[in-house]
Write a protein that binds this DNA or RNA. Structure first.
Lengths: 338, 338
DNA sequence: CTGAAAGCGCTAACAA
DNA sequence: TTGTTAGCGCTTTCAG
């Protein structure tokens, strides 16, 4: 049996001997329909293998209760736990979440903003520092957007973030406390503001300690493993001296460690390394990575909550700042007295 | 300027002094409209800040040109490159791709299948071994589905996969060639068929070499880092002897190495380890992981191509099998002569 | 509690 | 080349 045809609400109505309005009601607001009628409808639904067409519903209601989470680089495990946090909060409120990959490309951010303008989704949670310049000047054209983890300047949008300056300064202070004086920084893609904030924290800690922040010791990269490798290669080939590295991401820290080892340097004996993010691999690594933990799940959850607020008509411009924590593991050693 | 209102195709038509049909044509099939008219329309679109409502379009066309990629565990970096392959093929054909997380949960698979039945997307690419039993028996209720990387039995769906038995046997043969006789296997979640295939390859290689496959040396897990740790703990506490491990995923291999080290064992000196997948961290790890590389990007691409075929009305039941490659790095050493 | 009917915004036959 | 028109499937007033 089970005709292979796709059935619609009219078929069901006919089968049940009621109107389409009643079918709709029985399905969406069961309490608004008499028990007996409801039963008839459910039976007809069953018999017709009816699945309501969500597109029609979405169209009619002008909302699909879906939010897009656009991340800088879907290859970075950092974003996965954030996704879970977002999804948690979303599903509690009856929203779905889709994840998109910006691939560090401004045009792709613009594309995704367009997707929302076209109503493919109700809102966009942005986790990338790229923001199309032409939209910055025309905030009235923007669909609902919340920024998470990253910093976008020059535009007034709700945000949830951590205090990157403080977190970075803390990490570098720890290195200094371990006796390090020559500390390199693998920065994010300057001049993006997130990268800038972490760099500022690094500089601040050095300054406090009366240490000179040599520009030679700062190398920018795109947070990837490969960028970490590359930056260390650059440092090494320029013969820049350093006994410790503060990396703006765990992936760069991991890449850096790989490269250091290939050059015959031992971590942490010769060079100490601190990362940022506390991705899942950080602890599995050898040595386990000392790093700055961001409250990812919480960050995702709060971002989604800001989004819901916004979607419910609020015009929240909140900026929520969450706490970080320096997780001390094995990749830092006291500076060897030479 | 720029009234903040959302404008629709009628507003634009009025502004341009043409019919809505012409606006639609100018936007979707510009070549079917006279140059001059097109210009008028574009100007009106600009002036009205018009963005076509994709929901209306989707509804009208009964397709949103979107495909969902549902993975076993979005936390496993293995899936990310596959995603890229899928997206590549998809965007060439004008499709969008969304990624969902099955979290190893059959109910979530069923949910996502429902999403497609409800027309939230046109099709589903499944990368998980879980398949709702009640749907297995009712293939006529299934929306377009393609299986990738995983194996789902008892149902006739297009698939792209690797020869897991052969790939696993090759990996274990390599271990045997290095002199290992006591080889443990960190299996996937038995009795799932993907896990079963890799186990079969392991057994096959042992049998060929006349080695006894002791059940004590086989521990099942869910492919995660934590599962790798846990399995090794189990092996160690049962005092099972082994000089090598073949893990059914890189994540389990990485977890296993971490745990071995915590127990004072050295890799590869005391224990050799081979993984499966060649995730990006495999090479960054110390020691770099010897592992079975799956052609992920290609796999994604082909899966999407099967999907497009299916969506275009083909009833392809193809099973595509791709080649794997054993990537030899530093996590295996010849067995120490004792 | 239920039915009739309007209409969400867009596209595609068909006609002009 | 352009306009007219009829819906796509569903939800939601408004009457009854």
């Amino acid at each position: 049996m089970a005709k292979d045809q796709i059935s619609n609400i009219r078929d069901v109505a006919a089968l049940a001997g009621v109107s389409t309005a009643t079918v709709s009601r029985a399905l969406q607001h069961p309490d608004k329909v008499r028990e007996e009628t409801r039963k008839k409808v459910f039976e007809a639904v069953e018999k017709a293998n009816f699945v309501p067409n969500a597109n029609a519903r979405t169209f009619r209601q002008q909302s699909n209760r879906t939010v897009i989470l656009l991340v800088r680089d879907i290859g970075n495990p950092f974003y996965l736990e954030i996704f879970k946090g977002v999804e948690e909060a979303a599903s509690e409120a009856g929203y779905k979440v889709l994840m998109g990959d910006a691939r560090d490309d401004e045009a792709r951010v613009a594309n995704h903003i367009d997707l929302v303008r076209q109503r493919h989704a109700d809102g966009l949670i942005l986790m990338t520092g790229h923001f199309p310049a032409e939209l910055r000047d025309r905030p009235e054209l923007l669909p609902p957007i919340v920024i998470a983890s990253e910093t976008v300047t020059g535009i007034d949008l709700p945000m949830v973030k951590v205090d990157n300056v403080k977190a970075s300064a803390d990490a570098v202070r720890y290195l200094i406390a371990q006796g390090h004086r020559e500390i390199a920084h693998l920065a994010g893609p300057l001049p993006e503001s997130l990268a800038g904030e972490r760099l500022a924290g690094y500089r601040q800690a050095l300054a406090e300690a009366g240490l000179h922040a040599s520009d030679d010791r700062i190398v920018a990269g795109d947070y990837s493993i490969e960028a970490g490798r590359h930056s260390v290669r650059q440092l090494l080939s320029a013969k820049t001296s350093f006994t410790a590295i503060f990396a703006a991401s765990d992936q760069m820290a991991i890449g850096a460690i790989g490269e250091l080892r290939q050059s015959g340097l031992s971590v942490p004996k010769d060079v100490s390394v601190v990362g940022f993010d506390d991705i899942i691999f950080a602890n599995a690594f050898d040595p386990p990575l000392t790093t700055v933990r961001q409250p990812r799940r919480e960050m995702g959850r709060q971002a989604m909550e800001l989004m819901i607020e916004r979607l419910d008509g609020g015009r929240s411009h909140a900026i929520i700042e969450l706490e970080t924590e320096l997780v001390i593991r094995g990749s830092v050693a006291p500076r060897a007295p030479n």
